[in-house]
Design a protein around this nucleic acid. Structure first.
Length: 227
DNA sequence: TACCAGGTCCTCG
DNA sequence: CGAGGACATGGT
């Protein structure tokens, strides 16, 4: 595929398709098809599963849980994360994680439970030190890579950081845009959108919705983003 | 039965 | 660096 430049976006290379279809239009198409996704889901003890469309207040009060969820969902279906969160509830706190006698056992449904238990302990210890949540700080912790760090920054700390995952790269590929580095993808989106956490929140969630459909019906997902 | 899921780390050349 | 493998459960 031939790559061409767009003077509006110096440093980026686009296929001919993307020139006529910027990333805001893609957002509108995804939103039009899937609608609001209501992220981040917060575990609700009353119903025993995660609830979407939570108020900003509830999300504010559950920042730690959001971060824990971001770790638990690494290469793992959210349904399995919910089981782990249910086992951790009703109290999901750094103190509980650090003193839990059977952490590996209760998070087992989320997979990679040995590694993830270690990640949760390291993150909890860091949390209790009351450090400022910056990208550099988070990336410095063992077990937190770029996507997990960015998920925390966006969904827990409300910062305008665009989250890149495998689905996002797949979407880009469909649009004819490919980069090598994670940060190149991130800047590609951030450079074309206003730095609005709510927009980034919805966009990433919509890309996940699109990505989930991709494996089931590739023909359909291509049509959704086509002009 | 294989393959995939809201990745990350480690090792080896 | 960069490719390749390990980590692990549950759904389709």
């Amino acid at each position: 595929m031939s790559k061409i430049t767009n003077p509006d976006y110096p440093g980026f290379y686009f296929s001919a398709t993307v020139i006529y279809m910027n990333i805001k239009k893609v957002y509108k198409k995804l939103y039009g098809y899937f609608g609001s996704q209501g992220w981040w889901p917060i575990f609700d003890i009353k119903i025993g599963e995660c609830k979407y469309n939570c108020s900003e207040n509830i999300k504010q009060n559950n920042k730690f849980e959001i971060c824990i969820g971001a770790i638990l969902t690494q290469n793992t279906a959210w349904k399995n994360v919910e089981k782990a969160l249910a086992n951790l509830s009703p109290e999901i706190s750094p103190e509980k994680i650090l003193t839990h006698k059977k952490l590996e056992k209760v998070i087992q449904p989320a997979g990679y439970y040995n590694q993830k238990a270690k990640k949760l302990r390291i993150f909890s210890k860091w949390w209790l030190q009351n450090k400022k949540a910056t990208r550099e700080e988070l990336l410095g912790l063992w077990g937190i890579g770029p996507e997990t760090a960015d998920s925390m920054l966006l969904y827990a700390f409300n910062q305008p950081i665009f989250v890149i995952d495998t689905y996002t790269k797949r979407l880009c590929k469909e649009l004819g845009v490919e980069f090598k580095e994670y940060d190149e993808y991130r800047k590609f989106f951030e450079s074309q959108l206003p730095p609005d956490p709510k927009l980034f929140n919805e966009y990433h969630a919509l890309i996940v919705a699109w990505g989930k459909l991709y494996t089931k019906d590739k023909e359909k997902v291509v049509k959704i983003i086509a002009s």
